[in-house]
Design a protein around this nucleic acid. Structure first.
Lengths: 344, 344
DNA sequence: GAAGCTATTTCAATCGATTGCAGCCTTCTT
DNA sequence: AAGAAGGCTGCAATCGATTGAAATAGCTTC
């Protein structure tokens, strides 16, 4: 049975000795078809396990029920959370997701977007690669009328819906908490300048200091966003004549490097030095002491992004205003920071 | 310019006053077309930013250049590594990936596979959900001639290519190392019975004990595979009159729970108690002490899986033998285990 | 000048499904 | 008994691109 591979409407028609168009109408419950024929067709379709060819349907309807996702790296807890959020809602709305990872390469991002366009995705979700400075590939997509939502790594050069976390405010809250618990020399291990999320977090850090009448000391700010570098930088910083009494890092992995180095130096956390990361990765609950951090709510970012895209698809090209949805970040206090000692 | 949306071959033909078939042949460098026409067509195509409609091509050629991936959860370091391995090679081979996550639900797995079939993917990569006991949805796909590769969570009920990590051997190596470094009462925190990867790791544990003439003590084996439970179980076990001197856990997150509890109990690691996890997640280098573990090589598993699938697609349905590719696991020794003290 | 060649181009069918319209067959009406 | 009406079914075009076959134009040759 069914050695021929895939069953088409024509196969059903031939089997029953009727026209393909009749079969099609019967399957779609067109009222012009008699009850008898309808039943015959449906029965046979079930028996032969007929499934409509989505490709043919797409060609005819010009709808692919497919969305494209372009993402820097899947192997990041944050991004995989975003993907999960997107997947879950896309699935409920009956959309397939084609996923491209750019590995932070601009070239792959361009090719990815082009491939998605060739596949006739109905919409695109994208988080920009670290290298991306030119947006022609995205303008191209927008010109073709493909709706787009940028999330997390966005640019103000394009008019699209956007979803970001309030990096600035998250950083501000974190640093403010450090100050309120008595820290005065707070070091910041930051991401590369020019990367918006890193810049925003650095600004939040600086502004929190200023608002508390603390000077921003450039010697305490380093560009360092991974575990290995953090190990080195921490020891350098702790060797200063006036070492920091707290670290605020651009991500959790960097913070774990700080913690590890501090433990090796036998510096008590948080009694002598406090540490706050950023992301609330899985690993933040696992360190000793458990890491205080800022939750980015990746799953919600994913959900908000796909929701904006679905809304726009629903609107059928009606001119909805562009929305920039800012997801609230949340300060998660664990054991790498002191309990608030200053109350106002 | 280009307000009409997407450019088709017919648009080019109308613009030049020639037939669509001529345009098509010119674009594909058919020798029957004059140099002059070819140039005119290619120039216009570039100017109007013509891109062939992949849907139409798929319908005609019956090739979608798309593969399907069904995976329990994206938000797992191991699985995201696998996806990355798959993505990278699929991309190089010119294939798109449609991804479905089942969230460990059998129903979603069935729907996912059916959707992939409707989308006419050319092949399927799948890691079974924890619930899956019936394989009709997969047999269905195989009957339609869709090649399939199962990875990590596989079943012997189906004849397909498979890629797994040598869980048994990894566990055996881990426990053997514990014994060689002097541990005698080794507890195992295991995954649910019936889940092949958990069963294999438990067997590796038991066999290593037996081969070293140690008894398998059922009191030291617990079903516990997450951080929270591990915190509780560890304290229970350490309260025994003869507490364990080592823990081997089914995954890294569980191991981090053990470490945290031991630290709280002020039990020195590895001097009094050793710990080995399984996976080599990002978090294993982050604990204090850094966690010894077994690397599953997720990225390679992904690469091996997609390679098997691509090979089969290349073979054009020729009857290749089914391959079960077992990826070597690797014991990663960090600071939660002692240095080998017994040499033979 | 008619037949034959060659170089180009167009026609038409195809992939699988959908759908407005035409057409056929019954049956009812007058 | 002829014509109208209504119920079903089939025809053909369509979506975008490809490709073998047919057609056309231009040119040579005897």
């Amino acid at each position: 049975m069914m050695a021929k591979g895939v069953v088409t409407i024509k196969d059903l028609a031939d089997e029953l000795g009727i026209a393909p168009s009749t079969v099609s109408k019967a399957l779609r419950n067109n009222p012009a078809i008699s009850e008898e024929t309808r039943k015959k067709v449906n029965d046979l379709a079930r028996r032969m396990n007929y499934k409509p060819n989505a490709i043919a349907l797409s060609l005819r309807s010009n709808r692919t029920k497919t969305l494209g996702l372009v993402i820097p790296e899947i192997v990041h807890h944050f991004f995989s959370l975003v993907i999960a959020g997107i997947e879950d809602l896309a699935y409920d709305a009956g959309y397939n997701m084609i996923i491209f990872q750019t590995n932070e390469s601009y070239n792959r991002e361009v090719i990815g977007v082009q491939t998605l366009l060739a596949s006739r995705v109905e919409g695109i979700l994208i988080s920009l690669s670290k290298e991306t400075r030119n947006y022609d590939h995205l303008r191209n997509a927008l010109d073709q009328g493909i709706p787009m939502v940028m999330f997390d790594r966005v640019t103000s050069d394009l008019e699209t819906d956007k979803v970001t976390v309030d990096d600035y405010h998250g950083a501000y809250m974190a640093v403010n908490h450090l100050i309120r618990t008595g820290c005065r020399r707070i070091s910041h291990l930051s991401g590369p300048p020019g990367l918006p999320i890193a810049d925003l977090r650095r600004m939040g850090y600086s502004d929190a200091l200023r608002d508390n009448n603390l000077e921003v000391n450039r010697d305490l700010i380093m560009y360092c966003d991974n575990f290995k570098q953090a190990r080195i930088r921490t020891k350098q910083l702790m060797n200063m004549t006036q070492p920091p009494d707290a670290f605020f890092t651009v991500n959790d992995l960097t913070a774990t490097g700080v913690i590890k180095s501090l433990l090796e130096l036998a510096i008590p956390i948080p009694q002598q030095v406090s540490v706050i990361g950023f992301s609330n990765d899985e690993l933040s609950q696992v360190t000793h002491p458990a890491l205080s951090t800022v939750d980015q709510h990746g799953y919600q970012i994913g959900q908000a992004s796909i929701q904006l895209l679905l809304d726009r698809l629903m609107a059928q090209g009606a001119a909805l205003p562009f929305i920039h949805h800012v997801i609230k970040s949340e300060l998660i206090l664990r054991d790498s920071t002191r309990i608030s000692i200053l109350s106002e």
